[in-house]
Design a protein around this nucleic acid. Sequence first.
DNA 1: ATTTATGCAAACATTTTGCAATAAA
DNA 2: TTTATTGCAAAATGTTTGCATAAAT
Lengths: 140, 140
Amino acid sequence: MSEPIATLGDALNRCQALGMRVSRQRRFILELLWDTKEHLSAREIYDRLNRASKPIGHTSVYQNLEALASKGVIECVERSEGRLYGNFSDSHSHINLTDPEQIIDVKIELPSDLIKQVEQQTGTVITDYRVEFFGHRVSS
Amino acid sequence: MSEPIATLGDALNRCQALGMRVSRQRRFILELLWDTKEHLSAREIYDRLNRASKPIGHTSVYQNLEALASKGVIECVERSEGRLYGNFSDSHSHINLTDPEQIIDVKIELPSDLIKQVEQQTGTVITDYRVEFFGHRVSS
DNA sequence: ATTTATGCAAACATTTTGCAATAAA
DNA sequence: TTTATTGCAAAATGTTTGCATAAAT
């Protein structure tokens, strides 16, 4: 497991370590995601940046979110409202609740032997992970 | 909580109990979801039914899935592939590899005490989960 | 200089809506 | 008969792609 991505600086460093260039627009996105605690849609990210005089096009938003999420620099969650993106500052994992829909962040750590087992089974080195839970509140 | 919907018959009965008519097309959808063990997209359901000479239109597929899911007759999960519907939960985990980019599917099961811990900490009932790993191959 | 990233325009995919025809009860 | 359901056509959203330009290293 490599370093967790807790701060904006971590995210920018991780980009460079991955061979991704720290472009103006990429920085805009990362700054926004580290400034907010919400999960945002591509559309929302596009709107907020352009409203804040941080010009960026739709294509760049989508391409960046896709690249950053697939490399584990940011997180992506699927919701009925669409695809939402957020930072890893607090916790990597979350619970998707239904009725009413809500996302709860949760901090969990997988047993290291479970991770080792996955690495050995697949011939990989795991650098990061997150767990996505689905469920509902106890009351119902 | 009312009776669990375990069989196709249960699902059809539940429809009637809810005042929903058991139309030809609605039955097609429920039969398909109870025949398969996969979660299917609206598109996939549309295609499979029409290919099987069980004619149904796009609108009906969407309207039915929406109605059935919102009334708890079937289950709906949001995935990166889109919105999927089914009659049971599957835990599908994978590893996102970089350099070259590749996704490996992996079957893992979390320790039940870890899940219980999350449920207690958050006051929720976990019905499903998946783990997303990030990493790279051992060679690189 | 080299390679990655940008972003317009357009294609593509998914989901929703109006509404007249149809079928279940 | 009554009322829910169907499904066409079209619109509203959301996402991806080709490619020439621009920018990062």
